[in-house]
Amino acid sequence: MSLNQTNLAELALSIKRWGQELGFAEIRITDVDLSHAEAGLQAWLDAGMHGEMEYMAAHGMKRARPAELVPGTVRVVSARMNYLPRDTENDWRAREQARLADPGAAVISIYARGRDYHKVLRARLQQLADKVKAEIGDFGYRVFTDSAPVMELPLAEKAGLGWRGKHTLLLSRTAGSMFFMGEFLVDLPLPVDQPTGAHCGQCSSCITACPTQAILGPGRLDARRCISYLTIELKHAIPVALRPLIGNRVYGCDDCQTVCPWNKFAQRAVLPDFDQRHGLGHASMVELFAWTEDEFNRKMEGSPIRRIGHQRWLRNLAVGLGNAAAAGARGDAAIVAALLARRDDPSPLVREHVEWALGCHFVQDNGAI
């Protein structure tokens, strides 16, 4: 099919319509020029703020040059998909804050309570690409969902899906930040959309709320201090100085999002994939700490949490249980019993964090364990 400017404009509108039919909240299109983002990326990498995320530096500036990643690319189709579970209450932000205030509660990032978004978005993006192919015939493309060296946030911002908030996440005036993003790179010169501009104003709630002060200033994040990094990306021991600041957050952290005023507009998912599974929105740390490796693998099948493995799961929970013991949580005896049961765990990583957690109880109790 020969595509002129009229055909391309009509195709762009069709892509956006098909995207919504597939469960995406919004589809926008941009070109591939990210030269404005290269200096910031290099400075962040040079400062070592990516920590152990070697993949962030592995491809050099190719991350900011989509046409080098997939030769022939001239446009990026950027998509977002809401992930708040369909039964989310209107006062969900207050509920999340209440969970944080309960020392024995296992707080897991909302996005991780359902199915692995990588699989869901990638499959839907592929279906979208298939629709384009059915319409125009073969074309060059590649779909991504947080799975390749692509600077998806700057691309999404340039496409007009939102703006980078001071916490570095993408914000939408109509949907806050509780959404996933994905994109596919195409060799079609589709008409591009325009950016929206930033709307954070003087608000700095996200910076103030960060438990570990990982947000150094507007748009400046030191991942090495971020609880999401510490509980998900970090493969080794969590720095002792940061453990008390993690509280009961055992997988990820939503604090900068729950305090953001724009998230009063956050939208619920339209797909059942992101509904809460295995009670992860109201589980206790003692309950989850008792899972065997087989239980963990079985219950976390299809979940993003499974990627960290049982050892790091126990590591994170041990830190949370230690903080709960230090806070004199209700059911303290059960917390100590749970920790003692893992004192001889085969994993040195788990044992070290369990000993630290038991030490928190010793300090709080002012006596021997």
Rank of each mutant, 00 (worst) to 15 (best):
S2P: 00
Q5W: 03
Q5H: 13
E10V: 01
L11H: 08
I15K: 06
F24Q: 04
R28T: 08
H36S: 15
E38I: 15
A39N: 04
L45H: 01
D46I: 12
H50T: 03
H50C: 13
M53G: 03
Y55S: 11
H59V: 07
M61P: 07
R63W: 08
A64Y: 05
P66T: 06
E68M: 09
V77L: 11
R80N: 11
P85R: 01
D87E: 13
W92S: 06
A101T: 09
V107N: 03
I108H: 10
R113H: 05
G114E: 00
G114T: 03
L121T: 07
R122E: 10
A123D: 13
R124P: 05
Q126S: 14
L128Y: 03
L128F: 12
K131L: 13
V132F: 06
E135I: 02
I136W: 00
D138E: 15
G140W: 10
V143H: 04
T145Q: 14
D146E: 02
D146R: 01
P149N: 10
V150I: 15
E152I: 13
E152H: 06
L153P: 00
K158M: 10
K158P: 06
L161N: 03
H167R: 10
T168L: 12
T168P: 02
L169S: 11
T174K: 13
G176S: 08
G182K: 03
G182F: 06
P191M: 08
G197V: 01
A198Y: 05
C200T: 07
G201C: 07
C203A: 10
T208L: 14
T208Y: 05
P211W: 07
G219Y: 02
L221V: 02
A223K: 05
A223D: 00
R225G: 01
C226E: 00
C226V: 04
Y229F: 14
T231A: 06
E233F: 06
H236W: 04
I238R: 01
V240E: 10
L242P: 04
R243P: 01
I246C: 00
I246F: 00
G247H: 03
G247D: 06
R249Q: 03
V250S: 02
Y251A: 09
D254A: 01
C256I: 11
Q257S: 05
T258F: 07
C260F: 09
P261R: 13
N263W: 04
A266H: 07
Q267W: 01
R268T: 14
R268E: 10
V270L: 15
L271R: 09
L271M: 15
D273P: 02
F274V: 09
F274A: 01
D275E: 01
D275G: 12
D275Y: 01
Q276V: 15
L280W: 15
G281F: 02
A283Y: 10
E287K: 15
L288R: 05
F289T: 10
T292Q: 05
D294R: 15
N297F: 07
P304V: 11
I305D: 00
R306W: 08
L317C: 09
A318G: 10
G320D: 00
G320N: 08
L321F: 03
N323V: 06
A324L: 04
A326V: 08
G328T: 02
A329Y: 00
R330W: 00
R330Y: 03
D332L: 11
I335F: 03
A337D: 14
A338R: 12
R343M: 14
D344A: 10
P346E: 11
S347C: 05
R351G: 05
H353S: 06
V354E: 04
V354S: 02
W356L: 11
F362Q: 14
V363Q: 10
N366G: 08
I369H: 11
